[in-house]
Amino acid sequence: MTPVERPSSEGISRRNFYVGAVYGMWAAISAALGIPALIYLFFPPKARKAEEWVEIGDVSKLAPDSPVEMVFRRNRVDGWKVISEKGTAWVVKQADRSIVAFGPQCTHLGCAYHWDEGKNDFLCPCHSSVFSVDGRVVSGPAPRPLDRFDVQVKGSKLLLGRLRQRREQNG
């Protein structure tokens, strides 16, 4: 069952036309299906309302350089839903009385770390990353300092905004 080539040049050019047209049309169809599919899968959804500030508690009685884990609820857009979920932050009143709120996950692989009163450090139990009270990496595999929430203090109330990564070791 091998193709029987027609000897005439007219037959060959017609054959070439058929083959070229078949490839061309399939390429067009694939593009018309494939490109929208890629756009559909890779473009982020149209942004909905930007995250609001969420009030998480009273910070007037915090002792300086003594981190406290604060639990709060906030709304998050999750696909087609807005879900209300529990969040935590390690809140520290620094020596200059400014407030810092760290995201609750180790910057290495996302484990939950905790404050070690005795050593005055944040310790991650997974791979032994150690962070100082201002979030800098003291030792261990963590690649960057602890992530920080945007914060606002209104009276004695602390408001949290977005969680941001920092690249630099200082501050």
Binding site: A37, I39, Y40, F43, P45, K46, R48, W80
Partner: peptide, 11 residues
């Protein structure tokens, strides 16, 4: 979720 597909996702 279908509304999300129609109104929020490109394509």
């Amino acid at each position: 979720s279908l509304r999300y597909i129609l109104t929020e996702l490109t394509g």
